[in-house]
Design a protein around this nucleic acid. Structure first.
Lengths: 158, 158
DNA sequence: CGTGTATTATTGAGTCCGCAAGCAATAGTA
DNA sequence: TACTATTGCTTGCGGACTCAATAATACACG
C-alpha cells in the first residue's frame, strides 16, 4: 500500500480503541433497548420510560415525595425537563404538587395513591421485560459485572 | 413489621434484581456521558453526537457513501430521523445527496471532502474524551469486558 | 437588619426525533 | 402484461427535552 496518495477514506480495518468500541456499543444498546421498552410501556400502560422511572423513584422515596431538583439529578434531566415530565403525570393524576413548609421555593412532587397503584400495576411486567433482555444472553454473574462497570462511568452510580 | 397494614410505599430496602440495577445504571450512565460529550462536541465543533456518528460511519463506508436505510439501522434511528439528521449535514456541506443508478428509489448519503476533513478534525479530540471517560475508572481488560457484555444486548453488536 | 448571592422552579423558544401517512420505484405473481 | 406487495424515502404533526431568561425565596455577612 502506498503512503503517497492522499487518503480519501478512513481505513475501516484500523481497529478503534476499546473505549471507543465500548462507547458505540453503549449508544447502540441503549437506543435499541430503550426503544423496545418504551414501545411496550407506551402500548400497555401509556407511559414513557421516564414517566415510569419518575413514578418508581417517587414510590421508594421518603413519604413518596421528592424535591424537583433531586428528581432531576436522579433521572439525569434538567430542572425544566422535570417540570414538563411532571406536568403530564399531574394531568394523569399520578403525581401532585405539594408545598414545603420550611422552604417556600420547593414544590414537592408527591406520588398519589393512584400513582402508587400504577407503579405496582406496571412494575412486574416491566421488570420482566428488562430481565428478559439482560438474561437472554448474559449470565447472572455477567449481569452483576456489567452493572458494576456501568456504575463506574460518569453518572452511573445510583 | 406488620403485614396487615396496606403498604403505602414500595420498600426501598428490597433489592432490585441485578438486571434492573444494570438497566438503571445503563440509563444513567448513558444520559450523563452523552450529555458531557454532546456539550463538548457542540461547543468545539458545532456537531451533535449523532452528527458525528453519521459522519464517522460514512467515512469508513465503501466510497464514503451509504443508503439512508442502512445508515438508519447503523445509528439506530428511524428513516425519518435520518432524513432530518442529513438535512442539517447537507446544509453544512458535509454530506451530499447522490443517486443510485441501479435503483431510483435510493438516495445515497455521500460524505463530501469537507465532511471527511471535518471527521479528521474532530475525531482525535472526541476519541480522547471517550477514552478519558472509560479509562478513568476502568482497566483496559474491564473496558473490553464491558464492550463484550454490551454487545450481547439487543442492538449492541456492530 | 439590608444587601448581594445562591437555590428552586417555571416559561418561551427552539431542536431533535418518532409515528403515521403518503409517494415513487421495484419485485413478485398470476 | 397487469395487479399487488414491498422497499426507500420524505413530510406533517406532535412529544420530549434543552437552553436562556425570569421570578421568588433563602442564606450569608457586613
Amino acid at each position: 500500500m502506498s503512503t503517497q496518495l492522499p487518503a480519501t477514506q478512513i481505513d475501516p480495518a484500523a481497529e478503534a480503541p476499546p473505549a471507543v468500541r465500548a462507547w458505540t456499543r453503549l449508544l447502540r444498546a441503549h437506543a435499541t433497548t430503550r426503544r423496545l421498552l418504551n414501545a411496550e410501556l407506551q402500548a400497555e400502560h401509556g407511559l414513557t420510560i421516564n414517566d415510569y422511572e419518575a413514578l418508581q423513584v417517587l414510590s421508594c422515596a421518603e413519604e413518596r415525595r421528592m424535591k424537583r431538583v433531586d428528581l432531576a439529578r436522579r433521572l439525569v434531566l434538567t430542572p425544566s425537563g422535570v417540570t414538563r415530565l411532571l406536568e403530564g403525570l399531574e394531568r394523569a393524576g399520578l403525581v401532585e404538587r405539594t408545598a414545603c413548609s420550611s422552604d417556600l421555593r420547593v414544590v414537592y412532587a408527591q406520588l398519589t395513591d393512584a400513582g402508587l397503584a400504577k407503579v405496582r400495576e406496571v412494575s412486574c411486567g416491566h421488570e420482566g421485560s428488562i430481565r428478559t433482555m439482560f438474561e437472554e444472553h448474559l449470565s447472572p454473574a455477567q449481569i452483576e459485572q456489567l452493572a458494576a462497570f456501568l456504575g463506574r462511568l460518569p453518572g452511573g452510580a445510583d
